[in-house]
Amino acid sequence: MSHWVLGEFGSDLALVEALRVLRAQGYQRLDAHTPFPVDAVFEALSLGRSRLPLLALVAGLGGAGFAYLTQWFTNAVDFPLDVGGRPLHSAPTSLPIAFELGVLSAALMIFGALMVLFGFPHVTHPVFDAEAFRSASVDGFWASVLVEDAGDGLAHVEKLLRDAGARRVAVVVAEAGT
């Protein structure tokens, strides 16, 4: 049974220091929980770059292309409709909807992809079992370590966290599969 060992630090700097120590000790399954995004934490965890821009670009181009083709097909092919002598396939008037649908598709893709990446909604994550963890969204800077074996490993991590200056330490049981 694996556990999350959580430690709360008073400042972002202390948290970054603790994460460095943990990584140096060989712990790889680390995370941090902060009330606002902290660049130094991203660096300490060596998080890579997000792939979202590419996804958004593809979705946006797809949506725009779909909208353009739809307008062309409906007004020029399937049901040709002469409006004031303008060409059946008139690019200038097809661009607005193509643009709007491109933006809409990209935005939905971004939001949807974020939800999938976050695994949201997920309101019962084990970290919420620790009452003290409530400070993570207020003024606490938490480090979390996933430890596979119970017993010595847990105690060792707890000690590491305390030595690094953690104000509070908590241990919660991780869900299967996380």
Binding site: G84, G85, R86, P92, T93, L95
Partner: peptide, 12 residues
Amino acid sequence: AYSQYMLIWVAS
């Protein structure tokens, strides 16, 4: 450029 062109093109 698009706005100017489209408005003139469409009103003709």
